[in-house]
Computed example of a mutant assay.
Amino acid sequence: MPLVLTLLVLAALALAVVAVVIARRGGRWPTLLMRPRRPRKLIWVPTVQHRELPPPQEDPVVGWARPQADAWRPGQPPLADQPLNPGLRTQLDGYALGRAKRVLEAPNLLEHAAADAESWPSVEQAVNETLALAESKGTVFADRALLTRALALCAAQGVLIAEWRQLEDGRTAWDGEVAQVRASDAFTIQRVGEAMLRRLLPDLFAGIQRRPPDLEPGLLVSYCTAVAFYLRLHGSPPSAFRREVAVAG
């Protein structure tokens, strides 16, 4: 008799479990053969580093004087002498990261600069001034042609940043010899210089046989970019901008 009661209790518990399962499945009887689940599609969501960040709430106009070799410090924070809010600095730097990425990925940049009669003189002058700076400090070149080509790419990137500024703001305004640019330009030049230093280190070491202790390779890279940026600001806006103005008029 106790065995029968035990079996009845177990059967009642089993029925209760089945009833709960049926209730949770909306009244449908559970099947032994479950339908295979379809594999979920993995949708790639870009991280912050891959997104094109929106422009900062404020991109103030700043003066950009001709870079001075003795005062140029590639590791110094951009616009350290400007009273910029720390939050704004973060926005400007984030925006500059996206712009620098597009500058670094620009295809055939050196070839395009060489074919542009207005851009190429700025590239040549920036490279020559950078090489002259290195020689004045006692640098001995092992492969001048290799070093020249590496610096020419840096100069072409500086020209592109300047033309980008002119595409957005038009012809550069000047206060004497000081160009009126945007704060984000300084951050972009720094980010491009940092990335190009890592990319060009093999060429820099192969092109320089001996250099003084106070001349870091990073100075040549960022200085060349900054000088080319300054020189190109003297010119007219790129032709794409002029065509847009002509069509709009």
Rank of each mutant, 00 (worst) to 15 (best):
F205D: 13
E194N: 12
R198G: 03
P202V: 03
S184M: 05
I189K: 10
Q190D: 06
G176C: 07
A179L: 02
S184V: 11
R198N: 00
D175P: 00
L201H: 10
V178K: 01
G193C: 07
R210I: 01
A183R: 05
R210D: 04
L201P: 01
Q209M: 12
F205C: 11
R210T: 09
R199D: 06
V178A: 02
F187A: 11
I189V: 14
I189W: 09
A179F: 03
R182Y: 07
L200V: 09
G207D: 13
R191V: 13
E194Q: 14
P202H: 02
A179G: 04
S184Q: 05
D203I: 01
R210Y: 07
A179E: 05
G207P: 06
A179K: 01
I208N: 03
R210S: 15
V192E: 00
E194W: 04
L204T: 00
T188W: 05
D185I: 06
G176S: 10
I208S: 08
A206R: 15
L204A: 01
A179N: 03
E194T: 11
L204I: 08
G193F: 03
R198W: 00
T188H: 09
M196N: 10
A179S: 05
D175E: 13
S184D: 06
R191Y: 10
F187K: 02
D185A: 13
V192H: 05
Q180W: 03
R199L: 14
F187P: 06
R182D: 12
E194A: 11
A195R: 15
R182H: 13
D203N: 07
L200P: 12
E194D: 12
D185S: 11
I189M: 14
I208L: 07
A186T: 04
R182V: 04
R199M: 12
Q190M: 08
V192I: 05
L204N: 03
A183G: 11
V192D: 00
D185F: 02
V192K: 12
D203S: 14
A195V: 02
R191D: 07
G207V: 10
G193W: 05
F205P: 00
L201A: 13
D175V: 13
A186K: 05
G176F: 14
F205E: 15
